[in-house]
């Protein structure tokens, strides 16, 4: 029974990692851009939520609704004024620019909020739990996984059922021909990054309410997100969820054996999957 419990907790933790990773996966899938500041943007959104919660006295879930359009704007502007200018056949400039952005966000947050670790108060939700068959699960971890699945379903729907999603896929295939259809590739990229930042806000909600954060934890979150995306197969959204869950389960299993092995077990699972399936579990046919 203890193993059962460990695995369930791992799956739930995987939901959090999938949320960290979904925005990264979306942006990579559309414009082959690896955003090294992704983890720091999650932390930035967590501070934004903290400010909204403490200034307006809103519940964190309501604060997230307020923060989403703001973060969409941040993503849109970031893509339009910065990233679109460095996207091109050479992959190095966007890597350097997003690495620089990561450093800038950390420093700005440290100036504004000090290096102290913080947490977004979520009231009684924090400790609520419910029995689920033989195991008891925390309400917040369960909500996290449900949100991750919801986010991925919503992104799938956007991608495969809407005109904007068709434009995303067409632009990803061939930007020049897409422009012959009346699509502005640069605007499509900005919309995609805006949407990724809405997902980042949801990730930040759970990051900030479930554990302490400080301005420097972004890069560590980025690594889990990266591993989830790569295990899943670059650009595959369901793969990203599977990747997150594999890392989550590996971490809780590792921790059950020896608490010091939690992080290591996650990384080992990542390497193991890559050894067996170098292109991830669900690789895209066209890459």
């Amino acid at each position: 029974m203890i193993w059962m419990d460990t695995i369930v907790q791992g799956v739930l933790l995987g939901g959090l990692y999938a949320l960290f990773a979904a925005g990264l996966s979306l942006v990579f899938g559309i414009m082959r851009l690896v955003n090294l500041a992704h983890g720091d943007l999650i932390v930035l959104a967590a501070y934004l939520l903290l400010v909204i919660v403490s200034m307006l006295g809103l519940h964190p879930f309501v604060a997230a609704l307020v923060a989403m359009p703001v973060m969409f704007g941040v993503g849109y502007g970031l893509q339009k004024f910065v990233l679109n200018r460095v996207l091109g056949p050479d992959i190095l400039p966007p890597l350097l620019v997003t690495f620089g952005l990561s450093v800038v966000i950390q420093n700005v947050l440290q100036e504004g909020f000090s290096a102290d670790s913080r947490r977004i108060p979520a009231g009684s939700l924090e400790t609520a739990s419910l029995p689920l068959g033989p195991v008891t699960v925390g309400l917040m971890p369960l909500l996290t996984l449900v949100s991750a699945i919801g986010v991925i379903l919503a992104l799938q729907w956007l991608f495969y059922r809407t005109s904007l999603g068709r434009a995303f896929r067409a632009t990803s295939d061939d930007p020049v021909t897409a422009s012959l259809m009346g699509i502005k590739p640069q605007r499509v990229f900005a919309q995609a990054t805006g949407i990724a930042m809405v997902v980042v806000t949801i990730a930040a909600l759970y990051l900030g309410t479930r554990s302490n954060f400080d301005p420097t934890i972004g890069p560590a979150r980025l690594i889990y997100a990266f591993e989830a995306v790569i295990i899943g197969g670059l650009g595959s959204l369901w793969g990203t969820l599977a990747g997150g869950i594999i890392i989550g389960v590996a971490q809780t299993l590792g921790a059950a054996v020896n608490p010091e092995w939690q992080i290591l077990a996650g990384h080992l699972a990542f390497l193991l999957v890559l050894l067996v399936r170098p292109r991830g579990l669900f690789p895209r046919a066209t890459d």
């Binding site: 068709r166 067409a170 990803s172 699509i183």
Partner: peptide, 12 residues
């Protein structure tokens, strides 16, 4: 567009 079906290619 290889990622789009025939009908989606037309719709776009």
């Amino acid at each position: 567009f290889p990622s789009l079906s025939v009908e989606e290619n037309l719709r776009i």
